[in-house]
Design a protein around this nucleic acid. Structure first.
Length: 210
DNA sequence: CCCTGATTCGC
DNA sequence: GCGAATCAGG
């Protein structure tokens, strides 16, 4: 067996997947290759993400012109332009929404905690322990990129109305890491409990829990 | 070059 | 079922 793919793992895959993370990113956090992620995702049936490419639908040579005619009559359906369902959906994450959601004018003081802050295990932490990486053909290059990415002001705008609370628990890249997974509040990426932790009124944050 | 996801096919 | 190899678009 190459991999267990336990319910737990699959759940995490689904979670990360729906969060709009790239296959490679998911793979890194799940400690598998992107190929594994893609492959599993396919088998799981989930895979509506915008694909950069559309592989050759047919092996060109296709039906030899001669007898192909008959075949075409019924089963033709040359996938030349089969999908009325185009692929507009932007790569979600790329959308780059404002870092600070327009909080209600009246209640402007909300401080998302699990941002790129100390206590928050964000994707930034992914750059950790490159030595443990089973693969990582090019740690240096990747590390550099990861670091650069980590420095970017925006490191988790990848939430696009998830169906599960994405409050991080544990350290990304480590076996125990996972997301809360509870049903999030409408318009919020976190469940009720974690939303309370995530959004703290500034005035009440005076003595926030460390 | 890098990235991305998609598909194939030996295991 | 799994995922490396390979493909293909940006």
């Amino acid at each position: 067996m190459a991999m267990e793919w336990t319910e737990e793992t699959i759940a995490r895959l689904r979670d990360l997947w729906q969060q709009g993370l790239s296959t490679a990113e998911i793979g890194r956090q799940l400690s598998v290759t992107k190929n594994a992620v893609v492959g599993k995702a396919h088998r799981l049936g989930l895979k509506p993400r915008p694909s950069p490419i559309r592989r050759a639908a047919k092996p060109v040579t296709a039906a030899p012109a001669a007898e192909s005619a008959a075949a075409m009559a019924s089963a033709q359906a040359a996938p030349s332009s089969p999908a009325p369902a185009e692929v507009e959906a932007a790569p979600a994450a790329a959308a780059v929404p404002p870092p600070v959601p327009q909080a209600a004018p009246v209640a402007p003081v909300e401080a998302p905690r699990p941002k790129v802050e100390v206590t928050a295990p964000t994707p930034a932490a992914t750059a950790q322990e490159p030595a443990v990486e089973p693969r990582a053909p090019r740690p240096s290059a990747r590390a550099t990129r990861a670091a650069a990415a980590a420095l970017r002001p925006v490191s988790e705008p990848r939430r696009r109305s998830s169906q599960s609370c994405c409050w991080p628990l544990g350290d990304p890249g480590t076996p125990g890491f996972h997301f809360c997974g509870a049903t999030p509040l409408p318009g919020k990426p976190y469940c009720a409990e974690h939303a309370q932790l995530a959004y703290v009124k500034l005035r009440d944050r005076r003595d926030n829990v460390a």
